[in-house]
Amino acid sequence: MKPIDAFYLKQEEPIQSCMMALRAIILKQDQNITTQLKYGLPFFCYKDKMFCYLWYHNKYRKPYIGFVEGHRFEETYLLQEKRKRMKIMLINSDEDLPIQNLNHILKQALDLYRNGIIRVKE
């Protein structure tokens, strides 16, 4: 078993199902997205450039998706907390995923890379 697969499988329910659904949604956004375990958590890269990751917020007791270039976004559902660059989107694992917000912010994040605002390998 790959370490990244073990990461998902060791999560308790409903966190495990939530994170696996988020992984599927992220990977479905673009064929150039890959995933790997970095710093002990699943990171998603666009053409080898990190753009988002999944983790669990201990204070709020919720999983979240973190956006590496989150400081560029003004959506009210994103939290910056004490981070300079990244913002996170908390996910309530006991409710339906906010698909519209997820697709919107993932598209915005990917467009930074696709449009050359964030340089990637060609």
Rank of each mutant, 00 (worst) to 15 (best):
P3W: 04
I4V: 09
I4F: 03
I4Y: 07
I4C: 02
D5P: 05
Y8L: 03
Y8E: 01
Y8Q: 02
L9E: 08
K10Y: 00
Q11C: 05
E12V: 01
E13G: 08
E13Y: 12
E13H: 13
I15L: 12
M19Q: 15
A21D: 13
A21Q: 15
L22K: 13
R23G: 08
I25V: 15
I26G: 06
I26T: 04
L27D: 08
L27C: 10
L27Q: 11
Q29Y: 05
Q29H: 09
N32H: 15
N32I: 03
Q36D: 08
L37S: 04
L37Q: 13
Y39R: 05
L41H: 06
P42S: 06
P42T: 03
F43D: 04
F44R: 04
Y46P: 11
Y46Q: 05
K47R: 15
K47M: 11
K49F: 01
M50V: 07
C52Y: 00
Y53T: 08
L54R: 07
W55N: 13
H57N: 14
H57S: 10
Y60R: 12
R61Q: 15
P63L: 02
G66H: 01
G66A: 12
F67S: 02
E69S: 09
F73W: 07
T76W: 03
Y77L: 05
L78Y: 00
L79R: 09
Q80Y: 01
K82I: 06
K84Y: 08
K87Q: 06
I91K: 04
S93M: 09
D94Q: 08
D94W: 11
E95G: 00
E95H: 03
E95P: 00
D96S: 09
P98W: 11
P98V: 03
I99S: 01
I99D: 05
N101I: 00
N101M: 02
L102H: 09
I105K: 12
Q108N: 07
L110A: 03
L110S: 03
R114F: 09
I117C: 01
I117R: 07
I118K: 07
I118V: 15
